[in-house]
Design a protein around this nucleic acid. Structure first.
Lengths: 331, 331
DNA sequence: CTAGGCAATGTTTACGTAAACATCCACTGG
DNA sequence: CCAGTGGATGTTTACGTAAACATTGCCTAG
């Protein structure tokens, strides 16, 4: 910076003003400084800048692996949205979702150059962890059910599940079976709860719940069971991958979709439009979730307010494809 | 830090030594300092540290959206591997893969707190861009064909494609059709080239090449064409998504897989084991690619050497599933 | 014509850390 | 008993930036 100042014949402070786009610099001076910057290939040193300003213009994102498409899309939206606000995004992968690992990530975070944190993770892993965060670092949680301890942004899981079940009931099915996600997952839990209450709310009896682990393989195993249930004409799978495995099992067992059984998924992954048959599913707006995470955390930073427990739900949308139809009147 | 020093009754330099695990501090003193740190909730300021040390312990990753599973898995491996080396990872999303956008990302990078850069991107977008990088910032490129200008780590695309084609020939197919990725992609290009040379090398005539855009929808369209080719008994799709669309089209047209037509994919995405039928495909080791990217860039930083053009290929593995079989003798 | 005001620019300083150098002290060997 | 040695700790300084304050000089109103 001193070199630039000397070359341009001004003080370093003027260089700083130009570099930060501050007013109070003549057009001529500004041009001269810019020319000197270019000539010397000057780049502001972000470490010094951060030290002086007391902020890094960086958000940390903690996520338990990038295994699910939803987390990835959310992450991408976070990165894009952060960039629009002039913030960079630093990734903190957590290899295994154990309390120890999460604690480790948080303590690494403490030494990291980060102004705020977005956590994409089930909340129960978080509870004991936040204590080790430096004071003043705000946290927003996605993909979780945080109650009043954190600010949360998430897809409206319950609303989506309700729409899925209603869609099948509207088509004329007596009841809807549910292929749920793993017990430990709040998303799975909320989808299952909404499935149950929607059914009972409509005066139907919920069939026994079938459980998978989000993977297509588990959906396949579940499908082999469901294929043998003669009463089953409609299934709501808690995600598209399990729906994929389900479709394969039903096909192998000679149960036609949607003629014999209708299937609805959740997520609307890009591939689901090409399943056999194309999958009716609940579309999640991950981009919006990511955007709201960033805006939420930035606004928390600005206000410095400590309002806890705001929860923002992002609505879903039912995408109708060929995997659902009215039950055959014959049966 | 000064507070900690005072509380522990030592100088700030001793605190620094403890904080960095340097030798030359008595066990007693160290314990006292650590106690003071805990009591005051001291965290080293990473901005000041970076300023003083001249390094950020951070790697930048530039990638054109996280749209493909491969990029995502590579990114994840990079983040994990970087963490093991004590480095953080900062994400630089590029919204649209235009020269302007890439240039923008690189110039933002210039002001970013980053010691080195890993680029997950087709190389041709890179050519004009690197000039704006600060000197001394090393670059490693993944998912690309960079010749001698950059250090490259990538999957052995050609080897994988060769294995796919040979597998089909070994099963007894006369020739193999190819559903290629978009023209702009080097990965697609290399897979297509290897397909062609493997066929001609085995004395077969390559059928006309069919082109998709990586998406399942494009695979579906291509499948509708291929279903009408009576000569076609084996298809090598350049990725699993297109193979998925292909399977749907063939199924709709009544061509059975693998009885009438064998299909091989590329990538081995998690879902491919649950396709109808489960897909034979080429498994890519993205984790290894990511790991090698990190190691490569770190070793380049250490040596400060300017050896250009090292290319490391990560081998693939053929995963045999139900979508391939010998051609029916009848026909 | 001059005081006052304001815009443009310069000077000083502090941010938190760690390298380089300085100091202190206990112990060893002659 | 003393010089020498080396380990433990303290002191000084610089990293690059930007806020706060200081200075300059020009313009305008009275």
């Amino acid at each position: 910076m001193a070199d630039v100042a000397q070359l341009a014949g001004v003080s370093s402070q003027t260089v700083s003003r130009v570099s930060n786009g501050f007013p109070g610099v003549t057009e001529d001076t500004r041009a001269q400084v810019l020319a000197a910057m270019r000539e010397l290939g000057y780049r502001p040193n972000s470490a010094a800048r951060a030290l002086r300003r007391g902020e890094f213009r960086t958000l940390g994102v903690i996520t338990f692996s990038l295994s699910t498409m939803g987390n990835i899309r959310t992450l991408e939206a976070i990165a894009t949205s952060a960039a629009e606000h002039g913030y960079a995004v630093t990734l903190l992968p957590v290899a295994v979702p154990t309390q120890d690992e999460v604690n480790g990530a948080f303590s690494r975070l403490g030494e990291l150059a980060v102004d705020a944190v977005i956590v994409i993770m089930e909340i129960h892993l978080l509870d004991a962890a936040t204590v080790s965060l430096p004071p003043g670092v705000q946290v927003v949680v996605a993909d979780s059910d945080a109650g009043d301890r954190y600010t949360v942004v998430d897809t409206d899981q319950a609303g989506g599940a309700r729409d899925a079940v209603r869609h099948l009931l509207d088509l004329g099915h007596d009841t809807v079976w549910h292929l749920a996600g793993p017990e430990g997952s709040f998303a799975a839990q909320r989808r299952a709860n909404a499935w149950r209450t929607t059914l009972t709310g409509a005066g139907r009896t919920p069939p026994p719940l079938v459980r998978g682990d989000w993977s297509a393989a588990s959906g396949y195993r579940a499908g082999l069971l469901l294929a043998d249930e003669p009463e089953c004409t409609a299934v709501f799978a808690a995600n598209d991958q399990m729906a994929l495995g389900l479709l394969r099992a039903l096909h192998e067992r000679g149960r036609r979709v949607p003629d014999d059984i209708s299937v609805v998924g959740f997520d609307d992954i890009p591939e689901s439009a090409s399943f056999l048959p194309p999958l009716t599913t609940i579309h999640q707006d991950f981009a919006e979730v990511g955007r709201l995470c960033v805006e939420g955390v930035l606004s928390k930073m600005r206000q410095d307010g400590v309002e806890h427990g705001t929860t923002t739900l992002v609505p879903t949308r039912l995408v109708r494809r060929a995997s659902t139809a009215a039950p055959r009147p014959g049966r």
